[in-house]
């Protein structure tokens, strides 16, 4: 059986179910309790679990992220909500230097089973400081896992896996996805961390995307189909570990690859995908790998400029056409 529920409800179901099965799990963050969640992800959880396990914090990301790390080290399983990942910048030290390093620094004596979660990247016209894609920073750090689901079923299954994982997990959501509906299976269905999946099969080009950009990639693929180009869309779901086998298998089939992500073009997840593809599928490639990202500037407030800076289906369509037509009289890059 499956039901159609929203992304935010899928997240909430996962947290509620995990808190019901394990008293060590608690939720902490700004406005998660009495306010019912800044984006209503945690609605009703305070009433269900009480103030011992659903804990409103003051505006002190470094402080409560650190509290989570300490609690995890001695056996609890915290879920730490950032109202947006943008605010995690002031808690970066807690994640970089404590959560991800304590296991190695202690010679494996201590682990840090903690989930940091919240909406990531841009929303709509929220301005420069609320529009950063933070996953690129966190995915570079050994010791952490990073996930960014695009659909409600994955949001639920990956959240359950993240809470049960013995390592710190950065869980990247999106304000623009919270109301997206999708089929979610009933019961205790866990989606393994580190597994991508093909959400649209195709033969001419692989489009690699994740989170909100998976939906952009699917739109682009639908448009391309009308022009006779068959694009395969790979939804990464996990950014670390990265499912390089599935990506490489897809590219070996399509011989071309376009990567789509929010955030800037310098380095980051897109560059990492390009590196894996050229190492694992070099002999199969018929065109350079192209990346479609946010333009290399801060996010402007103006609506038209913001849309211009963000990856749009039209830009993805254009990139796919360039790699597909390479060698047919048009330069690819």
């Amino acid at each position: 059986m499956a039901r159609s529920i929203r992304y935010r409800e899928a997240l909430r179901e996962a947290m509620v179910e995990e808190m019901e099965r394990d008293d060590r799990v608690f939720l902490m963050g700004e406005e998660v309790g009495h306010y019912q969640g800044a984006y209503k992800v945690t609605e009703g959880m305070l009433e269900k679990f009480g103030a011992r396990r659903v804990i409103d914090t003051p505006i002190a990301e470094s402080g409560f992220a650190g509290v989570g790390v300490g609690a995890a080290m001695v056996g609890l399983r915290p879920i730490i909500e950032f109202m947006t990942w943008n605010f995690s910048a002031v808690a970066f030290d807690q994640i970089l230097n404590n959560a991800t390093k304590v296991r190695q620094m202690s010679g494996g004596q201590f682990s840090c089973p903690i989930v940091f979660r919240g909406p990531n990247g841009s929303a709509r016209q929220v301005g420069s400081q609320h529009s950063t894609s933070m996953e690129h920073f966190y995915a570079t750090i050994p010791g952490v896992k990073v996930v960014a689901p695009a659909f409600p079923a994955d949001a639920k299954g990956l959240m359950k896996a993240a809470i049960r994982d013995e390592n710190p997990v950065c869980f990247m959501e999106s304000e623009t996805l919270y109301s997206v509906k999708g089929e979610v299976p009933d019961g205790d269905v866990v989606v393994e961390l580190g597994k991508a999946h093909v959400v649209r099969a195709g033969t001419d080009c692989t489009i690699v995307a994740y989170s909100r950009m998976t939906h952009v990639a699917l739109e682009a693929a639908a448009a391309l189909e009308k022009e006779g180009i068959s694009a395969e869309v790979v939804d990464l779901r996990s950014l670390r570990p990265l499912d390089e086998d599935l990506i490489a298998d897809s590219v070996r089939k399509t011989h071309r690859c376009v990567v789509v992500h929010e955030g800037w073009p310098y380095g980051g997840v897109g560059a990492e995908v390009c590196d894996r593809v050229q190492r694992l599928a070099f002999d199969w490639l018929e065109a350079p790998i192209l990346r479609i990202s946010q333009l290399d500037v801060g996010m402007p407030y103006n609506a038209k400029l913001e849309q211009m800076c963000m990856p749009q289906p039209a830009r993805v369509v254009d990139a796919v056409k360039r790699v597909v037509t390479r060698g047919r009289g048009k330069a690819a890059s």
Partner: peptide
């Protein structure tokens, strides 16, 4: 970075002040 789980020595930390919220988290637990 000295740690000893057997004696509940939860570590020496190298970023000044960074371990103080962590210690509050241990007390929270």
């Amino acid at each position: 970075h000295l740690f000893d789980k057997a004696t509940n020595m939860l570590g020496g930390y190298g970023i000044v002040g960074g371990h103080i919220p962590l210690a509050s988290g241990v007390a929270f637990a």
